[in-house]
Design a binder for these strands. Structure first.
Lengths: 388, 388
DNA sequence: TTACTAATTATGGAGACCTTCAAAAGTAAC
DNA sequence: GTTACTTTTGAAGGTCTCCATAATTAGTAA
């Protein structure tokens, strides 16, 4: 609990101050030494010393001084956010998505590759390979430039990066994604459940930005959850947290069934596409459709209420494919949750759309680097890809 | 997420090293400078410097050198764990319990005062006052010596230390415990739900010592929970976490009803005492009693399963009054949980008995001090009671 | 009494920080 | 074009904290 940081000699102090400078400068435009000095609390001369050291290491870069200011023009330094790169990969049912981002988390290149929902393991992995290669090429990078990558997939994932169980794609069970993607890129490869990554993305760039405790609901053809507790992704002891839908009494397994019973769609419609027709009819006021949506919302709310009662989050975020129909789904969902819970959290709709998972994958990669590159214990090392 | 610790000047380094020395020394017998130097990683001369400073501040004390060793006898220093004190108060239905512990968490004095279950607000608070006074007197302390105190109570507690809702004792609702106990002792007064404190105690001195994620079940006349996530007590956004029993579909409200239907007890038995008879009969193999216990276990398991599925803890701890009857309760509980959950955690019985809540209260007080007295950001201040 | 052992004390040196002040490099006004 | 003003840069001197090393001290063991 007390992650003690060992004391040390003077170099440790320099380490900490270098860390402070990097922290102030990351994700911001170039700053002058005076500004850095003010923001870090260090004296001007010390700031200069630290900055020069970081520059010689390759973390900082001098940029053109700002013109047209009073006084002697100040040198300005920026964080070299392009010193390293991270990848976020989303392996979805219909789409493979790869994002390349710099160390500031700025997404620089995006690749979307369609893949048949019926594609087998080999075909899908092949599409991943192609998409990663395409993204690297577009960014002018090689796999060696990637310092960390995260792969998002449906199903249960173990700590080693293997898919332990995939209900949606039976053939997917057992695939060792960390190893597979590890062939393509350098650095650590993390593998994580897609709902969790989407939740993470919401706390980073989405509607949950300032919440410490969040319950994320992935509502779509599959139903899943992601839990943010104390600002951190909660995985559980064996990465099995959030599986509330498995409780027979709550029946998330049944939830979709309600939508599939809908008969108002054109004959021959793929059962997977039915949901869209139900929501559309409900939107137009069709009584039966509204009732179907209400039943679905109730089932969803049961599991959600269990999570809300258990965790008392500040926020519940509705994401996934169905969140596009939040206009007809959110109200019944909210009512059902209000019936059951002691304290009612805010309930909002995701705005990240279908890029949430890949974005969360980028964030997880960045968090991993943060821990290993800019940690108080280790300080800042030279800007090279950390050992795997 | 990145709790950045600002860099700083050389005094900051000394601060960190002083912290390291204190950390090594706390909760251990007196050490020599050489041993301290080895464990902190500092050089001998520096260690001496730091130790001398801490001694002059009052945190460290020299003790008699160990006799009968080769070479020049080394000075030995111990952490002055009696420089400050904390209190743990458990306001139960039948008993008020007050524990006085030193800064190492060593419980030095215990006071137990019986109180009528029917006692009203004033009478109960009076008993608390008396018990606290008695405990202070026994320890030779005054309220001013107490650096932090925690009060455990049933019911929902707000962040200010007020009981927002007490189902078991309606008259208890609204009582401002932090204020009330604050009259008696110095330092911060924290108020927390009793189930949560019991959970905390289990991770400190109980069966959950090395678990990061724990679901604690308080099974007794009331049913409650305490959640430990990432090694920390989880309260939720509005201190309402763990209220899974409120979900109508899981029905913890009904759970006790099963036990109350029991007719095998002597006529005129207080309904609250029925449970003991049921468990006893079940222990002797009475079929009907076994069935009643099984029904109770099933209801309990429903909520427990929801928590386990949501959080995937390493451990489920069964505590509370009924945990004394774990021999007949644990097996059916485990079976019901196994039916419902994806990954089955260890399920064990608490060993702390009815001191768990007070012990957890001590621990919470200590954690509070730890944050304010020995934090990496603040360093170690002089050993005086921190401002409220 | 003498040898051995391990802690203490003293010394010198290096690294990182701070404050202060003079010099430099621009803009703005005349 | 010169002068005044503003702000940054660069250099000097000082303090603090740490480290390594060597000389001294206070015990035990033979």
């Amino acid at each position: 609990m007390t992650e003690q940081l060992a004391g040390g000699d003077l170099s440790r102090l320099r380490q900490l101050n270098a860390l402070a400078v990097v922290h102030v400068l990351r994700g911001r435009p170039a700053l002058t030494l005076t500004e850095l000095s003010r923001d870090t609390g260090l004296s001007r001369p010390s700031t200069e010393d630290v900055v020069l050291q970081l520059q010689s290491q390759g973390w900082l870069e001098e940029v053109q001084p700002a013109p047209g200011v009073m006084g002697r023009p100040a040198r300005r330094y920026r964080f070299r956010s392009d010193a390293g790169w991270v990848l976020g990969v989303d392996i979805g049912g219909h789409t493979i998505r790869v994002l390349a981002a710099d160390l500031d988390g700025e997404v620089r290149h995006t690749v979307r590759t369609p893949v048949a929902i019926t594609a087998g393991r080999a075909e899908r992995l092949g599409a991943v390979d192609a998409a990663v290669a395409e993204c690297l090429a577009a960014a002018g990078l090689t796999g060696a430039d990637i310092w960390a990558a995260t792969v998002g997939t449906s199903g249960l994932v173990d700590a080693a990066g293997r898919v332990v169980l995939s209900v949606a794609f039976p053939e997917w069970t057992g695939v060792h994604l960390a190893q597979h993607v590890g062939r393509l890129v350098g650095g650590t490869v993390l593998v994580e459940n897609d709902s969790r990554l989407a939740a993470l993305a919401e706390t980073w760039r989405g509607v949950a930005r300032y919440a410490q405790h969040v319950v994320y609901l992935l509502a779509g053809l599959r139903t899943g959850t992601g839990l943010i507790i104390d600002g951190r992704l909660h995985r559980g002891f064996a990465q099995a947290a959030g599986e509330i839908g498995a409780l027979p009494e709550l029946g998330w397994i049944r939830a979709q069934e309600h939508l599939r019973t809908w008969t108002g769609a054109p004959a021959g419609t793929d059962p997977d596409d039915l949901a869209g027709y139900v929501f559309a009819s409900a939107r137009e006021g069709d009584r039966k459709a509204v009732a179907v949506v209400r039943r679905y919302a109730k089932e969803l709310a049961l599991g959600a209420s269990a999570l809300v009662l258990a965790l008392d989050p500040q926020l519940v975020v509705l994401g996934g494919g169905f969140s596009r129909s939040a206009d007809v789904l959110l109200d019944p969902l909210r009512r059902e949750i209000e019936k059951r819970c002691v304290r009612i959290p805010e309930i909002v709709t995701s705005t990240l759309g279908d890029e949430a998972v890949a974005l969360g994958a980028v964030k997880l990669s960045l968090d991993h680097l943060q821990e290993h590159l800019f940690d108080v214990r280790t300080g800042v090392a030279a800007p090279v890809r950390p050992a795997r």
